[in-house]
Every structure is written in C-alpha cells, then in structure tokens.
Amino acid sequence: MSSQTLEETRAELDAPRSGFGHALRAEWIKLWTVRSTWWTMSALIVLGAGLTTLICWGNASWLASSDADESPGSFITWGMMIAQVCAVIVGTLAVTSEYGTGMVRTSFAAVPHRGAVFAAKAIVVCGVLFVVGTATAVLGYLGGNYFLDREGIGLALEGDVARAMYGSGLYLAALGLLSMAVGFLVRHTAAAISIVLATVFVIGNMVMLIPGELGDFITKVMPGNAASSLVAPVSFNPEALGAWTGFGVLMGEVAALCALAWWLLRTRDA
C-alpha cells in the first residue's frame, strides 16, 4: 500500500462523522434554498392573514347585527382553513422533491441512519410551520379584529382567542408532518399532495353522508375535522371534538402514519 493511500485512509478515519446536528443543518439549508419554499410560505401568509382580514371586513356589520347566527370568534382565524393547503405543499415537497431529483440517495449516503433523516426533516418542517402559522394567525387577528372593533364586537387576545393563535401553528405543523409521512410513503409530489388534500377537504366532508352515530364519529375524527376547535375560538361545528381532545386524536393519526413511513423508509430501497 502506497504512502499516499495510507494518508488518504487515515484522513477518512479522522474525518468527523455526520451527526444529528449536521442532519438538522442540512435539512434547514435544503428547505430554504429552493424557491418553492419561499413562494409557498408567502402564499401561506397572504392567504391566512389576508383572507381572515377580508372575511372579517365583509361580515363585521352582519356579525354585529341581531340577525347573526355565528360568533365573531368563528371568523377570526378563517383564512387559516385555506392556508393549510400551503402547509401540505411544504411538508410534501420537503420529501418528494428529493425523490424526484434523486438527491435522496445523497442524503442517505451522508447520513446512513435513515431514521435520523426522517427526524431531522420532521423537526425542521414542524418548527418552521409552527412559527409561520402562529405569526400568520396573529397577523390575521390584527387585521380582522380592526374591523370587528369598529362594530363594537372586537375580541381580546386572551383565553380561547390566544389559544387559537398558537393552535393554528400547531395544526399546520401537524399537517406538515402528516404530509411528510405521505410523501415518504408514495414518493411522488402530485400523488402525495392529492391524497392529503382529498383526505382533509373531500373525504372529511363526504363522510358526513354516512348515517347514524358511526357517521358522526368518523366525521369528528377525520384529520381535517379533529382539530377544527383548536384553530378557532368558536368552531363553526358545535358537535366538533374539544380543542385539545381533537388535537390529541389528530396527533395519534399522524404518529401512526409516521411510524409506518419510518418503517418503510428503513426497509425498502431509496
């Protein structure tokens, strides 16, 4: 063995191994160095805060009248119902974009423990969506409450209203994690986004057609419905699960899907 080969081998042995901190930093860089993240986050803020402000502006006078059959608290986070589409896209693209380009093989070569890659992606995606989601809900509250205040029905940022602000961030983080898990399962951007959006928006409403108590139960525990009370001071659906009960149900569903995605990630080829 030549002296050059010995030196190269020694250098490889002495090189620092990639730890979980390196994986976190890599996932952070990968998330923010693609234009789709910036566009999607911008859309999340515009839709979440902008639509809440617009809806409150358009309904403030009606909500203040005696004809109103809804609470102002049902509208103060209204835009977050649409902004959740952006959370689905962010969570999905964090996974499927790498499978689409083949870069996932590089990620697994740099961090052979695939579970660490999964965990690092989950922490980064959930952390970003929680912060952006909470900030967006607060912006929507400030804009929407301005018009509610003008009609004398403004809401103080306390109690259930304050809970709805960070609850919106928690819900978007959970939805991003759910989308990540589906992304690892199907490895295709369009398919993963379609599956999650269909589950949240379409199937979640269609199950209402199932008669009896079974239909009521399934409707309450669907991912898009379970945490509906968490993201609004007053839910549009009085039969919905309680705020933290519903969030617990949602997190149980997300955890089960993540466990399946984690197992498949470690057992099948990249």
Results as ranks from 00 to 15, higher is better:
Y146D: 03
T136E: 09
A120R: 03
S65L: 11
F217V: 15
I153F: 07
T134A: 14
V196M: 06
P223F: 02
R266Y: 01
Y166N: 10
D149T: 13
M41L: 13
Y99F: 15
W28K: 04
A243G: 00
S74G: 03
V186Q: 11
M180I: 04
G204W: 02
R266P: 02
A181L: 14
M80Q: 10
E213Y: 04
G144Q: 09
L241I: 03
A240K: 03
V46R: 12
E98Q: 10
G127I: 13
A240P: 01
S194Q: 00
L93D: 03
A181Q: 14
F236K: 00
N145R: 07
G100S: 03
A119S: 14
W78Q: 11
S228K: 04
S228C: 00
G183H: 07
S74M: 08
I82P: 00
K220E: 05
A137C: 06
S107R: 00
F108S: 04
T37K: 04
I123N: 10
A232H: 07
L47W: 10
Q4D: 14
A120H: 03
M80V: 04
E7V: 09
G215K: 07
T9Q: 12
G140L: 02
C86T: 10
L155M: 15
S97G: 01
G48T: 05
R163W: 10
A60F: 01
S71H: 12
A23K: 08
T267K: 08
L54M: 14
I210S: 04
G143H: 09
E12L: 12
G48E: 06
V104W: 00
M165N: 09
A135V: 15
S66P: 09
A49H: 05
W262V: 03
C258E: 14
E158D: 15
G183L: 08
A255Y: 10
S97L: 01
L148M: 14
Q84N: 02
A122V: 14
A68G: 09
Y171N: 15
W62G: 06
V34T: 15
L178F: 15
G58P: 03
A256N: 09
L63I: 03
R25S: 06
M251A: 06
G58M: 14
T245E: 10
V128Q: 09
A181F: 14
G154M: 08
G252D: 07
V138W: 15
D216M: 07
F147R: 04
G248C: 02
P72G: 10
R150W: 05
T134D: 08
D160E: 15
S2W: 11
L24C: 07
S194V: 06
T9M: 13
L51Q: 11
R17F: 13
P233G: 04
V95A: 03
G143L: 10
E7N: 12
L157D: 08
L214K: 01
D67L: 11
K30D: 10
R150F: 04
E98I: 06
W38K: 08
G21C: 11
W32C: 04
G183A: 06
S42R: 05
A43G: 12
L170R: 13
G79Y: 04
P16H: 05
L214D: 02
A64F: 08
V138T: 12
A64L: 09
G154L: 11
F147K: 02
T136D: 09
R150P: 01
D269M: 07
F201R: 01
A256K: 11
L178G: 14
G152R: 02
G19P: 11
H188E: 08
S228D: 07
F217T: 15
Y171P: 15
A191R: 01
S18V: 10
